[in-house]
Amino acid sequence: MTEITAFWIAIYIAMLAAFTGYVTISRVPAILHTPLMSGSNFIHGIVLVGAMVALGLANTPTEQVIGFIAVVLGAANVTGGYVVTERILQMFDRSGKKPRKGA
């Protein structure tokens, strides 16, 4: 497959992904907006794998420095995003600490 074909396939995929994101969010109740925003913040932490490849294939010191910073930032996005989302969602857990009447 040529590079150009791969490019267009990626565009097709991106279009379908856009619909997936749209449909997933469109049915969400307002109370989950904050956790969902935080959750999607975690999911774009996939930038970490790109940063790892960018640093791993870096040749010059400049590329290494920028790549290193990118991995640090990406890793912070991933762990921070996960912990924040987890903590927010913990509060929605009704089976846990305090079961409430009429819930």
Partner: peptide, 28 residues
């Protein structure tokens, strides 16, 4: 993130898809 997914020799589809999903969901 999605746009960066294109910048590798072979596109990084994980970045493209996850990025676009977040982009679309976030925009909505």
């Amino acid at each position: 993130v999605a746009l960066d997914g294109f910048s590798f020799v072979t596109p990084n589809y994980a970045m493209i898809i996850a990025g676009v999903i977040v982009g679309a969901a976030g925009a909505l």
